[in-house]
């Protein structure tokens, strides 16, 4: 079987998925992100967003660069590190 064209390797989103979502009306990065969860995985879009910007810019003839904001954490970290430890406290 032919391998898919993987765009987001964190959330397993392929080029095919993006094309399908686009034809359903998800035609900008924000709505694609909400619908497919592309770019919302542990690497926070470091690999996929530049490809996605290019793909949908070509599909829609609009410029989608510069619309992404990033929030902490921008790298995967353990949430345990946010916990203040009380005595005998368990998760």
């Amino acid at each position: 079987m032919k391998n898919p064209i993987m765009i987001c390797r964190c959330e397993d989103i392929t080029l095919e998925d993006i094309k399908n979502a686009f034809s359903m009306g998800f035609t900008d990065i924000e709505s694609l992100r909400r619908h497919l969860m592309i770019g919302t995985g542990p690497c926070q879009g470091k690999t996929c967003i530049p490809m996605l910007e290019k793909i949908i810019s070509e599909m829609s003839n609009k410029d989608f660069r510069g619309v992404i904001t990033t929030r902490p954490p921008e790298s995967p970290i353990s949430f345990g590190s946010f916990l203040h430890r009380g005595k005998n406290e368990k998760l």
């Binding site: 390797r9 397993d12 995985g41 542990p42 690497c43 470091k46 690999t47």
Partner: peptide, 22 residues
């Protein structure tokens, strides 16, 4: 393996930038 399609994952960027080796 990846979370939804169970595709094999291994080394990719080797410097802590991607998610492939998690």
């Amino acid at each position: 393996e990846s979370s939804k399609l169970h595709r094999p994952r291994g080394m990719f960027c080797a410097i802590g930038k991607c998610s492939s080796c998690m």
